[in-house]
Each structure stands twice: as C-alpha cells, then as structure tokens.
Simulated assay, not measured.
Amino acid sequence: MKNKYLHLITTTVLLCILASCRKDGGQLPSEEEQVGGGSTGKIKGLYVVNEGNMGSNKASLDYYDYATGIYKRNLFGETNPGIVLGLGDVATDVAIYGAKMYVAVNGSNLVEVMNARTAKHINTIKVPNCRYLKFYQNKVYVTSYDGYIAVADTGSLTVQTTIKVGRQPEQMAVVGTKMYVANSGGYTPSNYDRTVSVIDLNTSTVIKNIEVAINLDHIVADQYGDVYVTSRGDYYNISSKLFVIDTKTDAVKKQFDIPAGEIAINNDLAYIYSVEFNYNTGVNKTSYTLLDVKTETLLNRSFITDGTEKDIKTPYGLAIDPISEDIYLTDARDYVSSGMLYCYDKTGRKKWSVTTGDIPAHFAFLYQ
C-alpha cells in the first residue's frame, strides 16, 4: 500500500506496528556498491532520500555517482557524525536549489539544509509537520500538515511568512507566477479535503480553491500549462483517479479513471504507478502506466517492459532522468527492512538494482 507517513490515521497506526518489529533503531552502515558502469554528462549524480520508520530516527541519504557508477548509502550520517540523531525522523521530500540541498523531515519538524555537493550540514528551518518543498525566486515553500505553507528565504534560511491553504496540504506545482497546492484532509478520513489551492506568488495570497476530488496528493506540471493531480480515494469505495487542471482557466479539464499513486512527467510522457489498497477486500492492486501529456491520451503499455516488475513488492518512489530518460523506481518492500532502487533504461528494460536504506522514496538530481 502506498503511503507517505500521514495519509490516513489508520494507515499510520499500521506502519507504527510494523516499525515496532525493528528493534535496532540504528542507521544503515555506510557502504559503497558498484552498480553502474559509470558515465559523464550534465548530471553528476542522484540523491535518494529514505524516509525511515516513524519514531525511529532512521531517515537517511544515499547517493549514486554517475561518473563512477558507485552507490553510497548513509551519506549524511557519514558526512555529519556530530549530528547525533542523523537526518532525523521520517524524511518526506528532497530538492536542490542553487548550491544547497533541502530535505523535509516530517517527524523532526524541520527542513535540513546542507551543501548540495558534499551533504555537509548548513542549518535547519523549523517547520512543524513539514511535508513537501518547492522553490520560486529565492524562496523555499514548505507545506505543513498544520494547514499552511511556510515561506523561507533561501539566503537567511528563516521563515518570512505563512500562507493558509486547505487541510493537510501535500505537493505543490508552480506554473508562471501561480502555485497549485494539493490538499488532502488526511487527518479526517470521514471528511477529506477536495481542493487544490491556487496561490498568487507575487502577493502570497490564495486566489482560488479548485474543487477536484477527495484526498489529493501528488501534483505535477507539464510543459503545456496543465497540472496533473492524483486523488487517492478513500481506500474503501472510492477509487484513485487522475485529474488535469488547465492553469489558464484554473478549472478541471479532464479526468482519467485510472489508479494513480505517484506521477513523474518528462517531456511529453507522464509515468504513473499505483499501489491501490482496498480495506474491504484487503487486496493491493499494482499498476504501471504511461500517458502522453501532449495529446492527453493513455498509452496502452507499462513503462516497465521486460517483466521485472514482478520483482518489485511495494513501488514507493519514482523519478526520470531528464537527459538520458532512465527511470528510477524504489521498492519499500515490507516498510521495515532495507528497500531497493531499480534503474531502467528509457525503453523500460532493467539496467541495475541496489539495496537502499529503509523506505526509499524521494530523489534529487545533482548537476555538474
């Protein structure tokens, strides 16, 4: 079942029970592994953030070096041995802006800021219940499950203002001078939020709330002025769906009745996977889908083409290399032990896989 820590109170409790089976509480030992053949280009490497189980302070940072083909685990812990609790408790997002890398650490109520090239700690930004990150004109925007977005200066690393949005906001997308925020209402499953908040970034005010569907989560912009937003449904009788918002009219223009968990867009392709769990049946249904965002049509094929999707137990994170179009997909497996990272080429054939930290989920590409 695909969950990013606080999607449902009942799911959170379930993960707590699972996490309690792991007693060691320590970080994954630092380790390097040769997985790729090595390559050079505009991208220097790929950071992978592992969420870690709630309450265990086991969030961790891995790094794949494109030039050497070496995958290094627990980079933050090795680089910053003086930080006793490591990266912290439940990391929910990572992003690079300028020379700094930012990691939202939900359970620790902070954004960890480090040097993007060395992973050396610089400072932290206090944001209670922080979730996801987005940047605009030297500001970092951080969604808080407390119902607002914290806006911090990327120079001083201090929160300058907050913007009240919907209940339990998740991801954000920026198109022009507007930001679109997916509101979930995940704390109240009997009364989910149904809106996408639209923020005027020039005034830091909400100018509209678009009615979409219940329990919204991921939201991604394409190159044609549309944003794609996923609805997780209610895990009982209402299924997951995908919606398209036209940012010129700020209205829903299309609905795809497909399971939609994570979505990543590169050029004209949207890569979508879903692990849709139903409490009535107790069954997980996993799917991998491709969608042409230019024509807004579903393609009748998976983005994994060699049959190796059978090796993946719990797909949990997705990223597309914008240059090579390699596909990176993580597997959280049982949410308790170490996960896996799979790399596929642009045709959907597996290139390599590697063991990660616990619950690998989020990616940031480091450029030369």
Rank of each mutant, 00 (worst) to 15 (best):
V196I: 10
Y148A: 07
S231V: 01
V111G: 13
Y235M: 13
V181C: 03
T205W: 05
A91L: 05
T195G: 04
R232V: 00
T195H: 11
V94Q: 07
R131M: 10
F135S: 04
V94E: 03
D89R: 10
T177I: 04
R131T: 04
Y235F: 09
V206R: 14
D193H: 05
Q168P: 00
T203V: 06
I210Y: 12
I96C: 10
Y102S: 01
I199R: 09
V165E: 12
R167Q: 08
S144F: 01
T162S: 14
L216H: 08
A99R: 13
D89S: 08
T124D: 14
L201Y: 06
V142G: 06
R131W: 04
V220K: 15
S231I: 00
D222L: 06
L157R: 01
M101G: 11
P189S: 11
K100W: 02
V206P: 02
A221Y: 06
S197N: 07
I207V: 15
A173W: 00
D226I: 00
V220L: 10
G233A: 13
V174M: 08
K100G: 03
V229E: 13
T161D: 12
N202E: 13
V151S: 09
D200I: 06
T177G: 08
A173S: 11
V206A: 11
Y97N: 14
V159R: 14
N191P: 01
G225R: 09
Y148K: 09
D89K: 10
V198L: 09
K120P: 00
G185I: 07
V105G: 03
I96Q: 13
I125Y: 11
T230N: 13
K208D: 12
Q137Y: 06
G155S: 13
I214T: 05
E211R: 11
R194Y: 06
V111W: 08
L133W: 05
T177C: 05
I210N: 15
D222G: 06
N191F: 02
T230V: 04
A116H: 04
T92E: 14
Y180A: 00
V181Y: 00
K208A: 10
Q223Y: 03
L216D: 09
Y236H: 08
T177R: 15
Q223R: 14
T188E: 12
D200N: 15
A150M: 07
V229A: 14
N183K: 00
V140N: 10
N191Q: 13
V90N: 15
A152I: 02
T143M: 10
T143N: 07
Y148T: 02
T161Y: 02
P128M: 07
D93K: 07
N191M: 08
P189T: 06
S144Y: 03
I125M: 12
Y228K: 02
I149V: 09
P189V: 05
V212E: 09
S190D: 13
A119L: 02
M172Y: 03
N115G: 13
D226P: 00
F135A: 11
R131K: 15
L133Y: 05
P128I: 02
Y145D: 09
N138I: 00
I96G: 10
T118R: 15
D146I: 01
V127M: 03
D89I: 03
A152E: 03
Y192V: 02
Q137E: 14
Y102P: 01
Y187D: 14
G176F: 04
A116D: 04
A119C: 05
I163K: 09
G186F: 04
K139E: 11
Y97C: 10
V142S: 08
D222M: 07
I210P: 07
N109I: 00
I207M: 15
G225D: 03
